[in-house]
Each structure stands twice: as structure tokens, then as C-alpha cells.
Amino acid sequence: MSDDNHTLPYPAADSEHPTLVIPGEGADAPAPRRRKRWPWVVAIVLVVLVGLVVAAEFIARAVLPGVVRSMVIEQLDLPADQQLDVTADGILLPQLIGGRLDSLQLSTDSVTLEGITGAVDVTAEGVPLRGGDLDGASGTIRVDESQFTELLSGTELPVDAVAFEAPNATVSGSVSVLGVAIPISLTVTPGVADGDLELTPVGLTVGGLEIDAEQVGSSLGALGANLTQTQRVCIADRLPAGLTLSDLQIDGSVAVIDVDVDGAIVTDETLQQPGVCPQS
């Protein structure tokens, strides 16, 4: 080979010509970064916990009505098959843990107490789950014309039937004058005074004729005078002693009676028993 075409030597490595390193090759290549998994784990745990809480809430709402229903039926000595709907407000789990329900509603389309049948709705506030009195309670009782007639059956009024025409009620019956039965219809506006029914007369017919107060007194004597005066009727003996009448309104074909409930009725058995009317 001729010296005219000699091979040049490869340049030596120096700082001006650094050797390039291909990424991923060589012993000093950095390891690939691993993705963090803990956020996904936390999310899955939270989803599971939420699911458990929701399931527990559904279970509580399914179980609580039956428990409350059984307690009410036992305390008031109602029939075992008594229809009674129970609902509670708010999220139940925190209330159950705290041992107190914020608000509880009980309702039935028909219940019989001391011979009087009606629909009842009661709302109780601050219901203790481990014993104790209610913070308070109130409700309404709805009775039809026939049951309202029963409420008045123990009075001195001549009551055979009652007809509603809001805001009044007409009491029909008969009185005996000289051995002759005379039909009487007394129209009154019902209300409540000091826990008693109050009947304020607004009209009277005797024998089918409308008459004024003076005519009643002269023709029917003491009975006639009583008919023209406001009547007070105690029905405490028809209700648990823990219930007090607060208002009464005629609404269509029913009388709506509002009641206040003593919070101690759940612990004091005497308040669960029928009340007492004062002797006249």
C-alpha cells in the first residue's frame, strides 16, 4: 500500500468532543418513575364507606317504623293489627347515634279510643331513644258527624244526630213538653275553651219554626234557657290524660280537633290512661 493514502487516526476523546450516551443504555441509566396509586385506593375506600352509610340509612328507615309502631300499640293498648304509619325527618344515622330523633310523625286513618273513632296525626319533637320525655308533641283528631254525635251523647242537649255545615254544626233531637215530643234543632259554632268543647248557639228551631231566645225561655222553661246559652262539654274521659284540646274547626264533613300532647306521656302511664271530667 502506498504512503500517499495512509489512514488518519480516530480523534481522541476530550472535553471538546464528549462521547454521546444513548438513553436507556448503560449501567447508570435512571429507573422509570412508578405511578402513585394511593389516590385511587383512597377513592375506592371512600366509595365503599359511602355505600355502607347509605345502606345503613336504608336499614334504619326500614326498621325504625316497625319498632316505634310496636311501642305505641303496646303503650296505648291498641289492637295488634292497628294501622299506624311512622316517618322520621332528616338523616337518621346521626340521630340514632346521638340517641334522639329530631321529629317523628305518626298517623292513622282510623283508631278507636274510649269508644270514639277517628283519624289521628301526631308530630313528636325530640324523641329519646334511651328513655325520657319528649321535647314536645301536638296533633289533630278528625271525627265525622256520627262520632261527633257520640262526643255529645253525655250532655244535657237533646242529641239524636249532628250535621256539619262549616263553620257550624246543627244538633238535632227532641224534648218532651206535656208528654209530647217536640223536635228541636240547635245550630252552634264549635270551639275549645280551657280544654273543653265549647258550643256557641247561633240558631234554634222548635217544631220546625225558628224562634228567638225569649220565646225559647217562655215555651221550654229551664231547658229552653240552657239551649240558648254557650255550652261547655268535657271530653277528657274520651282521650288519654296526656292530651289536651287546643282548637276545633269544622272542615267539610269532619270536625278537626287540635290537641297538645304532654311530653311525659311516653314515661308516665297515668297520662296514657283516660282523663277525668270534673263532677257537675
Rank of each mutant, 00 (worst) to 15 (best):
W40T: 13
W40G: 13
V41Y: 01
V42R: 04
L46K: 02
V48G: 12
L49A: 14
G51S: 06
G51N: 05
G51L: 03
V53D: 15
V54M: 06
V54A: 15
E57D: 15
I59R: 07
I59A: 10
R61W: 01
A62I: 11
L64H: 04
V67R: 14
V67G: 11
M71Y: 08
I73T: 04
Q75T: 08
L76R: 12
L78N: 03
A80V: 15
A80S: 14
A80I: 12
D81V: 04
D81P: 04
L84D: 13
L84V: 12
V86Y: 04
T87P: 00
T87E: 01
A88Y: 00
A88E: 02
D89S: 12
D89W: 11
D89V: 15
G90P: 09
L93N: 00
L93W: 00
P94M: 08
P94K: 04
L96T: 07
L96W: 09
G99R: 03
G99N: 03
D102L: 00
S103L: 07
S103W: 02
S103V: 10
L104M: 01
L106R: 10
T108W: 08
S110P: 07
V111H: 05
V111S: 05
T112R: 04
L113Y: 13
G115L: 15
T117Q: 15
G118P: 01
A119I: 09
V120N: 12
V122I: 06
A124C: 04
E125P: 02
G126P: 10
V127R: 02
R130C: 09
R130I: 05
D135N: 05
A137W: 00
A137P: 00
G139N: 00
G139R: 01
D144V: 14
E145L: 15
T149W: 12
E150C: 10
L152C: 04
G154C: 11
T155F: 02
P158V: 09
P158A: 07
F164V: 03
F164C: 06
E165V: 05
A166T: 14
P167Y: 03
P167T: 01
N168F: 11
A169Q: 10
V171M: 02
S172N: 09
G173L: 09
G173E: 13
G173K: 07
G173D: 10
S174A: 14
V177I: 10
V177A: 13
V177W: 14
